[in-house]
Design a binder for these strands. Sequence first.
DNA 1: ACCTGAACACCGTTCAAGT
DNA 2: ACCTGAACACCGTTCAAGT
Lengths: 183, 183
Amino acid sequence: MPARRVRADARRNVEKLLDAADAAFRELGTGAPLEPVARRAGVAIGTLYGHFPNRRALARALLRDRHDALFARGDRLAEEPPGPALAAWIRAMAEHAALYGGLAEMLAAGLDNEASELHDDCARMTALTERLLAHARAARAVRPDVTPADVLALTTAAAWTRAQSAEQADRLLDHALRGMLTP
Amino acid sequence: MPARRVRADARRNVEKLLDAADAAFRELGTGAPLEPVARRAGVAIGTLYGHFPNRRALARALLRDRHDALFARGDRLAEEPPGPALAAWIRAMAEHAALYGGLAEMLAAGLDNEASELHDDCARMTALTERLLAHARAARAVRPDVTPADVLALTTAAAWTRAQSAEQADRLLDHALRGMLTP
DNA sequence: ACCTGAACACCGTTCAAGT
DNA sequence: ACCTGAACACCGTTCAAGT
């Protein structure tokens, strides 16, 4: 496809909006008021909506690079010893989903909701989880009754716990992984 | 102290407000709009605020009986075999904290925040958790590194998971408890 | 092609006036 | 002693007008 022509001022505005949104989401979570975001970026509120029709579209743009890195990590882990690889993957996802308050919920919802701008990314996370879990199961590194849904539920639960205390989230993962992996 | 005289219409209004709020919280979570609650109860919005200065006060009133039942359950469990009793207590708390969407967060916040109308109830839950965990530890039914905070974190995480899927929450508890209890 | 910002909608919360 | 509901504040979202 031909390179999309984008007016230089529009490109700059998008950059400034993303910077401001990242700061706001880090501080107040994914539900942060958007009018201050636009003001902080030096544009009118309509400009924000012009580039990002809704919160999820904004979140998707903010997470794009991070998600690429996460998927690359998952691909690399697929070549490593299956038990520790699965544990490392779960910890990586839980840490990622705690980047912004409310992100764990947003990602959990994106799994089911095909209309979500985050759905494709969530589907890739699920696919990687299934792949790493299959490896672990084949190596008898995980109990046979553990399902991909179990792993995803643990991940989002740990991400949510992390919003309150990173240490508690790690300890929750320790206990739950001990119950999921073979002794 | 002398019995507080309460005007009969005020008492009726409180009853109707609690019924309407319970329905709204069940449907929309603890963040449900309050104006429709007042309208549904047949009173003006100011009457709601007159009886309940904030959302937590309303939640506290709604949960009073349920909390009493939960504490009684905890007391009874303290007389039973310590390992299963601790597991049953965690499941009971997780189920309770999933009664309304957002309740798990509210209770977790009430633990730390002394100003919360829910703080006393949260403190009793903590005390019962500590007591049941101490019993389980004395009976060597639980791994020695499990802390009361670990148990509370698991409980709130499971309650939050329950908002999305009760079955997944139960499975999360299965796995995590397997990792916490002694084999 | 993009930006502006007024306009509309919605809800939380307070409080002066009424009964 | 309690209730009413207008009033104020705040934020999400849209869109006609402008550049």
